[in-house]
Design a protein around this nucleic acid. Structure first.
Lengths: 147, 147
DNA sequence: CCTTGCATAGTACGATCATTGCATAGTACA
DNA sequence: TGTACTATGCAATGATCGTACTATGCAAGG
């Protein structure tokens, strides 16, 4: 039972990784991670961002620097407390995250389309078949190949 | 249908990322990726490793340097063709990969255990429920947080 | 048989950029 | 003044590439 899910996990991690590779605007994993947070949780302060990413504030500041340089995010000085800076994802940044998501959806759709229907199968059978359709060998435990 | 798998994908990628974080011996994603390849495909030459990782030979050499320095891999000069160097994962490296896999298995087992049985459900229902059990919100599209 | 030339495998070196933390400075609020 | 938030200087590590170099093997020719 667990093995089946683990196999599906390997396949899906591979999908997620490939959807991030070969992007036009090159972003690192850390940068993408920050972008995703800004998209999902909305504008954040630098300290909050650092907390969410699990890094130090200075690291977050520099991360934001790079995102701003690439046009993927913007800084906004809060009018109430001018010490605070709100970081907001830009249109370009949002589009980038959307594209990655679209790629993931597309590849998953392809994999799902290649599966046998089997609507009455158990969860184990379903996940096993999914992993097999994705080209994963259930016995070989590690074939991610992500990035 | 695709949405269900996408939701499961988000959950599983989160699991994979967490299983890699907080390791005693700190390894980067690239290093772990190389280790996994060495574990799954056995000893490899530097060129083959570079090819599998999709990087240049010089990059692979330095990667191997770092792995060897950390005691996670070893170099072996081939006796037949002394130009060739086979890179082999060490016992420590193998243990590291095993630990990451074990963590992943454990977390997946926990998630699976929290699911309703539903052995006769369709694939869509199964994956949807899996994602829900993992605490993923189907509507928010990006909550990876991986490392 | 030996040498010369070419192909292959790996490495060394220099360079760039990203990530990260610590310590510190600057700025704004209370 | 003291506290909070952000930014910056400094430093280390890592990932990555291109180029050049060394070592080895292979094949053709003398």
């Amino acid at each position: 039972m667990v093995d089946a899910v683990v196999a599906a996990s390997r396949a899906l991690v591979g999908v997620a990784a490939r959807s991030l590779a070969g992007l036009e605007e090159e972003v690192t994993l850390s940068q993408y991670r920050a972008l995703v947070l800004l998209c999902s949780r909305g504008p954040q302060g630098v300290a909050q961002l650092a907390d969410l990413l699990g890094v130090s504030p200075s690291t977050a500041t520099r991360m934001v620097d790079r995102l701003v340089t690439k046009g993927l995010a913007r800084r906004h000085r809060a009018s109430r407390d001018r010490r605070c800076v709100t970081v907001r994802v830009s249109g370009v940044g949002e589009a980038l995250v959307r594209e990655v998501t679209a790629r993931r959806r597309a590849e998953i759709a392809r994999i799902v389309g290649s599966m046998a229907p089997g609507s009455h199968e158990s969860l184990v059978r379903a996940l096993s078949e999914f992993a097999r359709a994705a080209g994963e060998v259930p016995d070989q435990s590690w074939a991610w190949g992500w990035q």
